[in-house]
């Protein structure tokens, strides 16, 4: 009696635990290609190298927000001497000031990776807000 119950329970457990695999069995989605805006292309290098930005932009933003709000810094001078405004969304020299249109750039990877950062609840380009 209890043996059967345990086995059934185990099977259900394994099925449930591996749910992400079952859901994605139907093949993989192609990796997205975020569009680099003309401004960003012209600027060449971002704050860090491409791959570092890809991996660490959230840490950088986390550092920035503390620096701006808590230590009243506003500018970020990179190791190679370029100066950026430490802001996600305000001004031309901010992240979104250069990467115009977050849906073409930020959202592409965020959607692919299924992450929903709540930065956007407050910080976003006015274009998005007025849409």
């Amino acid at each position: 009696m209890s043996k059967n119950a345990i086995l059934t329970g185990l099977v259900i457990f394994i099925l449930a635990v591996l749910l992400p695999f079952w859901v994605n069995l139907g093949g993989t989605a192609a990796a997205p290609k975020p569009e680099i805006s003309a401004r960003a292309k012209a600027a060449g290098r971002c704050i860090l190298d491409k791959y570092d930005m890809r991996a660490d932009h959230m840490q950088l933003l986390g550092k920035w927000r503390n620096s701006v709000v808590r230590h009243s810094n506003r500018l970020y001078k990179t190791a190679d001497g370029k100066v950026f405004t430490m802001s996600l969304s305000t001004g031309k020299n901010s992240c979104l000031g250069c990467h115009e249109g977050k849906e073409k750039f930020c959202d592409k990877c965020h959607n692919y990776a299924n992450v929903a950062p709540y930065c956007w609840e407050c910080h976003t380009t006015p274009k998005e807000i007025n849409q």
Binding site: I47, S72, R74, Y76, K77, A79
Partner: peptide, 13 residues
């Protein structure tokens, strides 16, 4: 020791 990034205030603040 290598050059690194700095966070700073604007001069006109």
């Amino acid at each position: 020791t290598a050059p690194h990034a700095v966070e700073m205030k604007r001069k006109d603040a």
